[in-house]
Design a binder for these strands. Structure first.
Lengths: 214, 214
DNA sequence: CCGTACGACGAACGATCGTTCGGTTGCTGC
DNA sequence: GCAGCAACCGAACGATCGTTCGTCGTACGG
């Protein structure tokens, strides 16, 4: 499997070994840097199609060495999904997401969701592709559904308050809203110009529409 | 792998054997019915996580029997992707997609794309999840990009004609447009009420927006 | 300058992968 | 009623999967 183009003997970005004040040594790879490498591989080949051999090769060490730092494949997945979910759920805890009229809260959440999608792109990408094969994946799916349900409930509130134009079924609007925002992971890549204006542009587009009304 | 909940010994829907007029026998399973079974499994577990054992069990026969009907796993994938791509590209050949002002053509294509997405749901779902690990997957990815490029070009034409409201960057609008439409596969399931009105609702929402302007 | 702890490594484990093969069964056309 | 063939099955193949283990080299604390 994973007949993807074999990458060249990837140069490894090692966090230089540093001595702690108490004399404790730090590993050459910290857990988060190996996680970043692994998530990048997961996203290009897909989680199931990525072997531990692929991961260790991308990190520049052998498979057995890789296991010296991580506990297993699924633990890597869980850590990545945890990070993505933490970023998303933290949005709901912000004051601007909890106070004020539903429509205003909704717009704030969408703007922040775009920001988290772009800043935590690899982790959220992995989250949005989970299928539910293992217990870890099912847990992530359930948490993700809970997040979407929060937004859907907010859309329903906005409709009930008369803040959203009539004729739009709330559940359909919420689904298309989430779908539109989440689709950003399919094309956004960090470092492109105008990335800082993206959140506002997205909020504007879901508000005004893409095409003009007929 | 594929620790997904083991389904009960699935009852098999066999197309009853029929004698052809010329005396040719038809197999108990025709190729398309086995393809449908396989694609359904691919979509629930993911292509890589689905084993040939899973497919044959879903069809109600053993793995070796399954190979009597199909030539291999990747051939199944290719046939499914072919069907999805054929459905999408056929839209571009319709007269209403080739004649008239860009905005009108665009709206027609979107409406038809929603229809194809729902009528060919399993196949399009598989197409939208392809990652590019094998030559077949890369071929499907390239064809899909060509389809998206056609729509993006049409959006650019509409903007150039002054038919789309100002302030929307054409490439961003096109990407969010495709993302919105494609996200339907994440939640649409056949047989739900109001399915026939979905295409028009989607066209309306991408035209008027989801939330009211601030 | 030595002892040790840790990072890296090769080899191998059982399991499962996609695929093949030879043989059995039961219906069909003649 | 017999020959033939399509459908089916059990068993096994080489490969690769995720994971484990014992060992080696070496940089660092003492």
């Amino acid at each position: 499997m994973s007949a993807a183009p074999a990458q060249p003997p990837t140069p490894v970005v090692r966090t230089r070994r540093a001595r702690g004040e108490a004399g404790a040594r730090r590993p050459v790879y910290d857990a988060s840097s190996l996680l970043a490498v692994a998530v990048a591989e997961f996203n290009t080949r897909g989680y199931d199609a990525t072997s531990m051999e692929d991961l260790s090769r991308a990190a520049g060490i052998t498979k057995s060495s890789f296991y010296h730092h991580v506990s297993g494949k699924e633990e890597l997945l869980k850590a990545a999904l945890q990070r993505a979910l933490d970023g998303l759920f933290a949005i709901l805890e912000e004051p601007a997401a909890q106070e004020g009229p539903a429509l205003r809260r909704l717009r704030h959440i969408i703007r922040r969701q775009v920001e988290v999608l772009t800043s935590e792109l690899p982790y959220v990408t992995l989250l949005l592709r989970v299928r539910g094969n293992t217990e870890t994946e099912r847990w992530a799916l359930a948490r993700r559904r809970a997040f979407d349900a929060s937004i859907a409930s907010l859309v329903a509130d906005a409709v009930a308050d008369g803040e959203v134009r009539a004729g739009v079924e709330p559940s359909l609007a919420a689904r298309l809203l989430s779908g539109t925002v989440n689709s950003i992971i399919e094309w956004y890549r960090p470092g492109r110009p105008g990335a800082d204006t993206l959140p506002d542009e997205v909020v504007r587009i879901v508000s005004e529409g893409i095409l003009p009304p007929p």
